[in-house]
Amino acid sequence: MRFEGKKVLVTGGSRGIGRAIVEGFVREGAEVAFVYHSNQTAAEDVIATLSGEGFQTVTAHQCDVSQKDQVDALVESLIEKWDRIDVLVNNAGIVKDGLMATMDGDAWLDVINTNLNSVFYFCRAVTRQMMSQRYGRVVNMSSVAAEFPNQGQVNYAASKGGVQGLTRCMATELGKRGVTVNAIAPGFIETDMTEAVRNAAESEIKKMIPLRRLGRAEDIANAALFLASDGASYVTGQILTIDGGLTLGGI
């Protein structure tokens, strides 16, 4: 197993892409702590599913990822328990779409705080420990919307563009200490977050995708596990687009 004995922290791990990432790491031998915001039932279901398969190496932790003090306390407790964190996956994210002209300040700040500031908080919290052990893998979740946004996504696009810039800069700072930092930019993936768009225009969306299907959570999880593995030890500062060819622009 690729992650036997590794200690992994995943934010936004109770549903969708995050859940698939958690399950992938656990099934490949890692001990995983995942963060959820408020849906305790979904978090418990992840643990129950994996426990039913015989895995007892996963725990759920309630945390508001937009709150620095909560993030610092959680990371500190995990390092005290584990003595290290090998892999961090920043997956937590929300959408609050609306046209910029009518968007209120809360919709802007909520998305920036959850999607971008949380990435900074978690990365900063694990950085010194990863640097000291001269090993670490950080995988951040961006989006194709960072470069190809739709109308009404000014807050979301800005947050994901910020994640890409943070990822590249972190990679330059931490590479000499054996820490790689990469990001994934998903396209249309079958998750709760995209449900409204899919219900309104799924058939039209598929026509724009060369592979003629929406992505699955497992497609993104497979990429996250690769970037966190020894097989990607010479990959850093990269944004891996996984969109079925949507952004090629040739359709």
Rank of each mutant, 00 (worst) to 15 (best):
V10Y: 05
G16S: 03
I17S: 00
R19W: 01
I21P: 01
I21A: 04
I21M: 05
V22H: 05
V26C: 01
V26I: 02
R27G: 06
R27P: 06
G29K: 03
A30M: 08
E31S: 05
E31Y: 04
V32D: 01
A33Y: 09
Y36K: 02
Y36P: 00
H37M: 01
H37T: 03
A43H: 04
D45E: 13
D45R: 13
L50G: 03
L50H: 08
F55S: 07
F55T: 05
T57V: 01
T59P: 01
Q62L: 01
C63Y: 08
C63T: 14
Q67W: 01
Q67K: 12
Q70G: 10
Q70C: 11
V71G: 02
V71F: 04
D72I: 06
L74V: 03
V75W: 02
E76Q: 10
L78E: 11
E80A: 11
W82H: 05
D83F: 02
D83G: 13
N90C: 13
N91R: 03
G93I: 09
I94W: 12
V95L: 08
G98E: 08
L99V: 14
M100V: 15
M100D: 14
A101M: 14
A101K: 10
A101L: 14
D104T: 13
D104R: 07
G105T: 12
D106R: 15
W108K: 08
T114I: 15
T114Y: 12
C123F: 05
C123Y: 06
A125E: 06
Q129I: 11
M130S: 11
S132Y: 11
Q133T: 13
Y135E: 01
R137Y: 10
N140D: 01
S142M: 03
A145K: 06
F148Q: 03
P149L: 14
Q151C: 08
Y156L: 08
K160D: 07
G161E: 12
R168F: 08
C169T: 15
T172W: 14
K176E: 15
K176V: 12
R177D: 15
A185Y: 12
P186K: 00
G187D: 02
T191S: 04
D192E: 12
T194N: 13
T194D: 05
V197F: 04
A200C: 08
E204T: 12
K206Q: 10
M208G: 10
I209E: 11
P210W: 04
L211G: 03
L211D: 06
L214W: 05
L214T: 05
R216L: 15
R216A: 14
E218P: 04
D219A: 06
D219R: 02
N222T: 14
A223E: 09
L225E: 03
D230C: 07
S233A: 15
Q238C: 14
Q238A: 15
Q238H: 12
I239F: 09
I239Q: 09
I239G: 01
T241G: 12
T241H: 10
T241F: 07
T241M: 10
G244D: 11
G244A: 09
G245L: 07
T247A: 08
G249I: 15
G249Y: 11
